Amino acid sequence: MKPTSFITAALLRFSVLLLLGVALLKPTAAQADLVRLTAADNGKQVQLNVGDQLTLLLPTISPRFGWRLTQTYPGQLTVTTTNVLPGLSSGVPGAPATIEIHFQAVGTGGLELALVSAQPGTSYSSLNGFFHVFITIDKPGVAKNVNITEYGNHSQVKVNQGDQLAIRLDNTVGSQYTWEVMPITDNVVQLVAPPAEQLRTRKKSKKKAKPGSEEDVTFQFQALHPGKTTLRFLYRSAANNEAPPKRDFELEVEVPEPPK
């Protein structure tokens, strides 16, 4: 072999090895996370990314009875599979069986994932027939809508700057009691929309809601600046401001410093 041919072949082999090395060192796309929650995680906050999988393991009285979602979360979280496992899988000693529910995070947003026992009074430990966690599904650079229901009373939630926070509270059509948001003294979040006192089903029907039926009152906020604040609502009589409130709702909100 001529010296020039030998040098050319060597350079070609070196180039191939160099390209292979670069390919091996090149970072691959991040894989989806698998998040596992048990009864001990009741009331916690959970951070997910789009594509992540979430598994719930909750105790139940028998394989015949399980847990049901209080609502669905289209476009954000979807149920993929449900299984029945031995009781110890839930982490609660003495539980006869465990319901295993698998979810997939499919879109950005914030939600309160709430489940109730299919048979009242049949849960174990401190669950008392009710389990909920606050879930935030993020996607870099995308603002999201975070939805909280009255199940989240006296809880905490974390939202990013620019996110929308909707708090939906239960009300009764025709009642003299109404929800009132207490003044916000800081500049962490801001009320941007008045309460929408309409039944969700009223949007699908032109029929007027009957007195005594249930309706949702929604307060819409926007996260403005980093910090912590407490949102408080009172359910009191519109006819008598001096009467004590019938019930209240409180939510601690944290807006973290944006990443640098």
Rank of each mutant, 00 (worst) to 15 (best):
P93R: 04
T78P: 00
T98Q: 03
Y73C: 00
H154W: 05
G107Y: 04
Y151T: 15
P194I: 09
L48S: 01
L18M: 15
V142S: 03
L127Y: 07
F14N: 09
S125V: 12
T229D: 01
A40F: 09
L54W: 02
Q190A: 14
Y73E: 03
Y73P: 00
A239V: 10
V192Q: 08
Q45A: 01
H132G: 03
V188A: 01
S155F: 01
T80F: 05
Q45T: 09
S90M: 08
G51N: 06
K208S: 02
G91I: 12
Y177M: 05
G87D: 08
Q222H: 10
P258I: 07
L20E: 07
L191A: 08
A196N: 11
V192W: 04
F233I: 15
V157L: 02
F219H: 07
V50C: 02
Q47A: 13
T60I: 06
F249L: 04
Q222W: 05
I148V: 15
T38G: 15
T28C: 10
A238H: 05
K206H: 05
I137Q: 01
G21C: 11
F6Y: 13
L231A: 08
R64E: 11
F249R: 03
L127K: 08
T122R: 02
S62K: 08
F233N: 05
L58W: 03
V173W: 07
V173G: 00
L77M: 06
H102C: 10
A238R: 14
R64P: 05
S62P: 10
E180A: 14
P27E: 02
E197D: 11
G87P: 12
N153F: 01
A166G: 12
L88R: 06
L85Y: 13
Y124P: 02
D41W: 07
K246T: 13
L88T: 10
D170C: 11
S89K: 06
Y73L: 01
L54T: 13
P74K: 06
F221H: 05
A243L: 02
A32S: 15
Q164M: 07
F131C: 07
